[in-house]
Simulated scan of single mutants.
Amino acid sequence: MSKPDPTKPFDAFEKHASEYDAWYDKYKPAYESELLALKQFLPSHPEKLRALEIGVGTGRFASPLGIGYGIEPSEAMALLAKGRGIEVVRGIAEALPFKNQTLDLILIVTSISFFTDPAQGLREAARVLKPGGQIVIGMLDRESPLGQYYVEKQKESSFSSGARFLSAVEVSGLLAGLGYEKLESCQTLSGIPEEIEEVELPEEGTGKGGFAVLSARKPGNRIF
Rank of each mutant, 00 (worst) to 15 (best):
Y150C: 11
Y180P: 05
K182P: 01
D117H: 14
S172C: 07
A37L: 02
I92G: 03
L35Y: 06
S63D: 07
R123N: 00
K28E: 10
A37Q: 05
L178S: 11
K48D: 11
I86K: 08
R50G: 00
A76F: 00
D117Y: 10
A22D: 10
A17I: 08
K8N: 07
M139N: 02
I92E: 07
T116V: 04
L38R: 09
K208H: 07
S160Q: 13
K3H: 13
K218H: 05
L107K: 04
C186R: 04
R123D: 00
Q154A: 13
H16E: 12
A93L: 00
L189E: 00
S63W: 07
K99M: 12
V169S: 13
E32S: 05
L42A: 09
A12I: 14
D25W: 09
P46S: 04
P29G: 12
I108Q: 03
G179E: 05
E156L: 14
V213H: 04
K208E: 06
Q134T: 12
V89I: 13
A126P: 00
E181T: 14
F165R: 06
E197Y: 05
Q134C: 01
K99L: 12
R164T: 15
N221C: 08
E204W: 10
E32G: 03
A93S: 09
A30M: 05
I67A: 09
D141I: 07
G66W: 01
E94G: 06
Y180M: 09
G66P: 07
E87Q: 15
E156D: 15
L214C: 08
V128W: 03
Y31M: 03
S18T: 13
E170V: 05
A176S: 14
D21S: 15
P46E: 06
P118T: 14
L36C: 02
E170M: 03
P145S: 10
Q101A: 14
G173K: 06
Y69F: 15
I137C: 01
V151E: 15
V109Q: 01
A168T: 02
I196V: 14
Q148E: 15
A93P: 02
V89N: 06
L36N: 08
E198W: 04
E156A: 15
Y69N: 09
L129P: 06
S111Q: 01
Q101K: 15
E194P: 13
T58I: 06
T206E: 00
L49V: 02
K15Q: 13
L174P: 03
R50S: 11
G220T: 10
E19K: 14
R50V: 06
A17W: 02
V88C: 02
K15E: 11
R50P: 00
F41L: 05
K208W: 07
E195I: 02
K3I: 15
G210D: 07
V151T: 12
S113D: 09
M139K: 06
V171P: 06
S18Y: 03
L174R: 11
S167K: 04
D5S: 12
Y180T: 08
L35C: 10
E47K: 13
E181R: 13
K155C: 01
M77V: 01
A93C: 09
S63Y: 04
K82F: 00
Q134W: 01
D25P: 01
E14V: 04
G177Y: 07
S33Q: 08
A62T: 03
L65C: 03
V199T: 06
P64H: 11
S190K: 13
G209C: 11
G162A: 05
K218G: 01
E53S: 06
S190G: 14
T58Q: 11
L189I: 08
E34P: 03
G207I: 07
P4W: 10
R123E: 04
